[in-house]
Amino acid sequence: MRIAVTINGKPMSADVEPRTLLAYLIRDEFNLTGTHVGCDTTSCGACTVLMDGTPVKSCTVLAVQADGTEVMTVEGLEHNGQLHPLQQGFWESHGLQCGFCTPGMLMTTYALLQRNPDPSETTIRRAISGNLCRCTGYQNIVTAVQYAAPLVREARTLTTEVGE
């Protein structure tokens, strides 16, 4: 089936079998390998991407279901050579070790900060509870999100001011 998807702002299209999972569309067809696959039971969240702004496990969405949607992956976070505050936060706070869960964590926490720009530790821990990490014990991931939150708020204020 022919499908069209906007990935990180770029319109893309592909021919896929119905059984192709969104994660593999992104990885194999569009060569964006930052989206990882770590399990087969919708448990680990390494494949998390935003679909029309909502974080979903892309191993549990069919590529054909993404037809006509806007998908954002980890590769879409950096802007004009500037790392997203969350990427900076993960780096500064040692919020990653092997890096395999990191893209999924980044996408989930990106959506969290969109909805709640000042989350508590409990809120952050709940928000990332669909993303498994085997290396960090999550503690520095929480710190990383706390590092990023004020930067995201600031950026948002600036954008609003410019917009006005």
Partner: peptide
């Protein structure tokens, strides 16, 4: 239910 990502779908 399940986890936040599953709840989105």
């Amino acid at each position: 239910i399940a986890d936040p990502l599953v709840r989105n779908r």
